[in-house]
Amino acid sequence: MEEQRLDRSGRVLAAALAGLALSACEREERVMRRDPPVVAALDEAALLPGGVGGAEPLAHVALGKPYETNAYEIAQGKRLYAAMNCAGCHGDGSGGVGPSLIDGWWAYGADLPSLYATIRDGRPRGMPPYRQKLPPDSIWQLAGYVQTLASYSAKTAAPGRDDAPQTRPAENRAPATQAPLEPPAR
């Protein structure tokens, strides 16, 4: 009788341990399809006049800020960075025709709503608008990726590594610790 009880409690313990182990098994969620109304709501960033700074769309907050914290979304942004030829102006991130994205100087804001507005609406002196070229969720992915290039505080999520040799610090590996006080000479 005593042995049986021990046996049963052992089994319960094993089941509990297995349950605990399995609960840790869940991968980071990849959301492939967002409902069209959610995508439309993602476009509603409340920007301050001037288009720099502002509040994130409520939809992004309600989703748990996936474009800031989800590795899949950031990796999709990295794919879009190549596909949309961002490198044509910004190079590998260290700049070219366009400004550098990794020197810690964000001319139009380093927060996600500002980055989103920069890509969606374009900026003076050459940044084209992508409003008609990408749907809102894709622009968010791109904004999230660009932010990982030189965010002041490292995110917990990072995109996949490059296949080619790195020509700059890997994303999210060497965040700009301090904003420069002056814009870099260009």
Partner: peptide, 16 residues
Amino acid sequence: VDPQTIKPGANMPAIA
């Protein structure tokens, strides 16, 4: 109209 239901994860986004 809905590539992500037909082929989830495909790189074609849904366009409104």
